[in-house]
Amino acid sequence: MPALYVGLMSGTSLDGIDAVLVEIDETRTAHLDAITAPMPEALRGEILELIGKPAGVDLRRLGALDARLGELFASAALELLSRSRRRPADIRAIGSHGQTLWHQPDSDTPFTLQIGDPNRIAERTGITTVADFRRRDMAAGGQGAPLVPAFHHARFASPGTTRVIVNIGGMANITILPALPERAPTGFDTGPGNILMDLHALTHLGRPHDASGAWAASGQVDDALLATMLADPYFSLQPPKTTGREHFNASWLQAQTDARPHTPPADIQATLTELTARSIRDAIRQHAPDCGHILICGGGAHNLHLMHRMQSLAAPLPVASTATCGVAPEWVEGTAFAWLADRTLRGLPGNLPSVTGARHPVILGTIYPGRL
């Protein structure tokens, strides 16, 4: 029997909470409705401040942020249900990724930290909530991310054609779906997605992003600056690998642009756009040389200039949005965490060791029961 789920996702860009209503059965995942609840600017600022100064974390602020975000996630779920004319009793479970504060898989003691208290989500909504998806994979020796490739494989695999799914959020990641069904999917974070472009736009335009990439399109790529950026060691690391604001952040951007002080801001934006497109293209060429089709999801799919650069760099390969396969690009990640919640409740593994590097498949997440 089909069941209804809600997926909740807040990504690296911190622009809002995606809430997605999904119908799932054993053979099908159907997206029914979705909203994005804006992240209050003051709350976004507090989270960014916490991420920017991890050595000076105030535990009282951390605990309060966890609680406040939990309430915000719950409100987003309830708003979605109200809009969809559904009752909490209609929903089997919520899958909540939470908000990543820090992700450090490559250290003596690997760990990851997401906040957005799932106890509060379950209490406010009355709906069983599945959360804390990353840590079990890390406990099994994996990177804890990316986790969405398992859903990409279930939803977008096309036997006979090697497909690459490119998710461009704050960071960018790819999922390689082999043409041969017996071959395991692979995937990894390629590097920055929208994060550096957004930071630069905020500084110079006073806006959180470069709408449709129009500003970047007005500039010229600084080839020397691009070469310096692409020389960052992350790009040459072999997968499995993941990254985030811990590496690609305002300080990283400042260090790069300080070396080219006379480059006009629009040219820097064009170069940052090219960095995202080129690093994705290079990753596909190296790790999926037989790729026959590229599908783009995430907020970056709405950046027209970035999509143009992706299409130019990937030619003659076809590049399209996941909307051509029935899932709007902005709702793929939220749908994925609804799907992962279903996997957890059915006692099925949700990670792909061929992607994360875990020693074996594991059931992801912790279950927080709804009201009795």
Rank of each mutant, 00 (worst) to 15 (best):
A154N: 05
Q114T: 00
R120L: 15
G126N: 11
P159Q: 13
L147S: 11
I121H: 00
F133R: 03
H152D: 15
M138Y: 02
P149G: 05
R155F: 09
D132C: 06
E123G: 05
Q143F: 01
A131K: 07
A154W: 13
G141S: 08
I127Q: 01
T129L: 10
I115A: 07
G160N: 12
D137R: 01
P149Q: 09
M138N: 02
P118Y: 05
R134H: 04
I121G: 00
F151K: 12
N119V: 07
R134L: 04
R120Q: 11
A122M: 05
T161D: 13
D137Q: 03
L147Q: 08
T125F: 02
V148T: 15
I115G: 10
Q143T: 14
P149A: 09
A157Y: 04
P118Q: 06
S158G: 04
A154D: 12
T128C: 09
G142D: 11
P159G: 10
R120P: 01
R155H: 06
T162M: 07
T161C: 11
P149R: 08
A122K: 02
A139K: 01
G126D: 11
A145I: 14
G160W: 13
T128M: 10
R124Q: 14
H152C: 08
H152T: 14
T125C: 05
Q114R: 03
H152E: 09
P159L: 10
G160F: 09
T161N: 12
V130L: 07
R124P: 00
E123R: 13
G126F: 09
D117E: 14
A154E: 12
D132K: 01
G144M: 02
G126T: 11
T162E: 15
M138R: 01
G142Q: 12
V148S: 09
I121L: 13
H152A: 06
R120E: 01
E123P: 00
G144N: 08
S158K: 12
T161V: 15
L147G: 12
Q114A: 04
V130T: 10
M138D: 03
A145C: 08
I121Y: 02
P149Y: 06
V130A: 12
H153R: 15
G141K: 07
I115L: 02
A157D: 07
T161G: 00
S158F: 03
S158H: 14
I115N: 04
M138T: 02
H152Q: 11
P118F: 07
D117K: 00
R120S: 06
R135F: 04
I115C: 06
R155S: 13
A139H: 08
I121P: 01
A122V: 09
A154F: 15
L147R: 02
P118W: 10
T128Y: 12
E123K: 07
I115S: 05
P159D: 13
P146S: 11
A122N: 06
V148C: 08
T162K: 10
T161Y: 05
G142F: 04
G141M: 13
D132A: 11
D137G: 04
G142M: 09
A145G: 15
A131C: 12
A157V: 12
D132Y: 00
N119C: 09
H152F: 07
G116A: 03
P149N: 09
G160S: 13
T129D: 10
H153S: 15
R124T: 11
H153V: 00
A131I: 12
G141R: 09
V130K: 01
Q143P: 00
G141D: 05
Q114N: 03
P159T: 13
R135V: 06
V130F: 04
A139G: 15
H153A: 15
D117I: 00
A139R: 11
